[in-house]
């Protein structure tokens, strides 16, 4: 128990003193996972909406695949992205392995199915005749889709939060494609694993607490946006 208490104290000391290395790691976590969420949001909501509103053969199968993807194991994503980005791999010529950009790519792959899956459920949950009603009022197609999205904004934002949660908490893929390089691709999760390996449990706990705080702040901001929009 002492260790936990020490970890908590250490965490707050690191935060209050604005330890430059920890601050840098935290900012990088936010940037990488934020970028991945932003990309995931665009791809996930667009594809999710399209799938939910269109009808085509194999739709149920595709939705099942996406729903399975919501639980995509990060290490599998990491392995896949690594193999693709190896110098000897098909995308090796871009030289992207062991960069923050590779981490963004991996985390985007993790976030997209989560956001797309929740988007599909949210859009399908809208009343069937709402779409007809909007159309009959003379709205164009893009306008209709936009209004449906606005109608589903609560669950959509929940999807974005889940996507961010999946990205920021993931460690397996980040270590594999980012390499946990100091001052370059070291983020909160990979640093926590490393410090645990070194036996610096106190610092590892502190980093874990900072990660929780970061996730809380981002989610709180998104929730604020969500609830405000919800009341209207």
């Amino acid at each position: 128990m002492d260790l936990l208490a020490d970890g908590v104290i250490r965490a707050f000391r690191l935060i209050i003193n604005l330890d430059p290395e920890v601050a840098e790691i935290t900012l990088l976590s936010l940037r990488i996972s934020g970028s991945a969420t932003l990309l995931g949001l665009v791809i996930g909501i667009a594809s999710g909406t399209a799938i939910a509103l269109a009808s085509f053969p194999g739709k149920r199968l595709l939705i099942s695949v996406i729903n399975t993807g919501m639980g995509l194991p990060p290490v599998v994503v990491g392995l896949f992205v690594s193999v693709m980005l190896w110098r000897s791999g098909p995308l090796g010529f871009i030289g992207m392995l062991y960069t923050p950009a590779a981490m963004i790519a991996a985390q985007t792959i993790i976030a997209v199915p989560i956001i797309a899956g929740i988007t599909i459920a949210a859009m399908q949950n809208l009343p069937e005749n709402l779409r007809l009603q909007i159309l009959s009022l003379g709205a164009s197609r893009p306008r209709t889709v936009w209004m449906l999205m606005l109608e589903a904004r609560l669950p959509l934002l929940a999807g974005v939060m889940a996507g961010f949660g999946g990205a920021v908490s993931e460690v397996g893929a980040s270590i594999m494609v980012g390499g946990n390089i100091r001052g370059y691709s070291r983020v909160l999760t990979t640093a926590t694993v490393m410090e645990t390996g070194k036996g610096n449990f106190e610092l590892a706990i502190a980093l874990g607490i900072i990660l929780l705080i970061l996730a809380f702040i981002v989610t709180a901001v998104l929730t604020l946006v969500q609830q405000r929009g919800g009341r209207r």
């Binding site: 990088l28 940037r31 990488i32 934020g34 970028s35 960069t99 923050p100 950009a101 963004i104």
Partner: peptide, 12 residues
Amino acid sequence: IVQGFIQASSVR
């Protein structure tokens, strides 16, 4: 975020 994104890719 986008700034971070650009930074990440320019470093590359």
